[in-house]
Design a binder for these strands. Structure first.
Lengths: 139, 139
DNA sequence: CTTGACCTTCCAGTCTCTGGAAGGTCCATA
DNA sequence: TATGGACCTTCCAGAGACTGGAAGGTCAAG
């Protein structure tokens, strides 16, 4: 299976597959006589695994760890769980950071009449900052 | 005021101030005879504005637009509101994306006993993907 | 045999900094 | 006055995760 078909079947773009090979996330693919990459079913499964892990937000380095854990049949499930739990916590931190940004911003937005006049509580809020809250402190 | 004092007083690290100058977000600072950057109070206010806008998650390009809007006294508040509203929507999209990741992942995590045994629903979930939901589709 | 869709490599750009090296400057103290 | 340490300067490189594009080779259909 060439890289285009592998991309379609795994959901990982061809360019990204080459990139993953270049950084060593996946081993170098076999080549046909003419130099085209040739992917086996197992390699497609690996790409799909990577695609799913990435879509869950795991950084590429963690995906590498997950691939190792996947192939290590003697590893404890607690190892995987620790990695996943850490990631959930990272997501939670990100979410609450975004929430505080959103709250502050929405507060300013609702105070702005948004018409032709130049007076604007949003700009004033960013410039003055007196009523800035979580997002301000969090930075 | 030299760059170190400007950094302290604005909350923008010295390195970042130089970076902002290099990309044109702020105009080149005045220099002392010996070549040190010298910041006025107005420039510190600008840096503070930038710091607050960035802490609200505005991308640097939008911060540039906000700076223009800040200095344009004839602009309509609706222009600012449009920018801010667009950003709130972007934040909302990000939050819901993270939420669906979190939900999927937490579902897998709670199914994993996390002990010494190798059997692991997290790895199986990523590999098999049958019970993958939003995060899978969202990608 | 030509055409068009694929494949290859390599370089550059995105975005927002951040670290580090090599060297100049400023100020206070000995 | 000399010296030390804390500042400042520039420039280059790297992070993370791709993505675009150019230049050129290959494959399959008509």
């Amino acid at each position: 299976m060439n890289i285009g078909a592998a991309a379609k079947s795994s959901g990982v773009p061809a360019k990204t597959i080459r990139y993953y090979e270049s950084i060593g996330l996946i081993p170098p693919a076999h080549r046909t006589e003419s130099g085209y990459r040739d992917f086996s079913k197992i390699e497609i499964d690996t790409l799909r695994f990577i695609q799913r892990a990435r879509s869950l937000g795991f950084p590429v380095k963690d995906v590498a760890k997950l691939l190792d854990l996947w192939h290590d049949r003697s590893r404890a499930s607690s190892d995987v769980k620790a990695l996943a739990t850490g990631h959930v916590e990272a997501i939670d931190r990100k979410i609450s950071e975004l929430h505080s940004m959103r709250d502050t911003l929405l507060h300013l937005v609702t105070q702005c009449h948004g018409d032709d006049r130049p007076d604007c509580p949003i700009i004033d809020g960013i410039a003055g900052g007196e009523q800035m809250t979580a997002a301000d402190i969090a930075s």
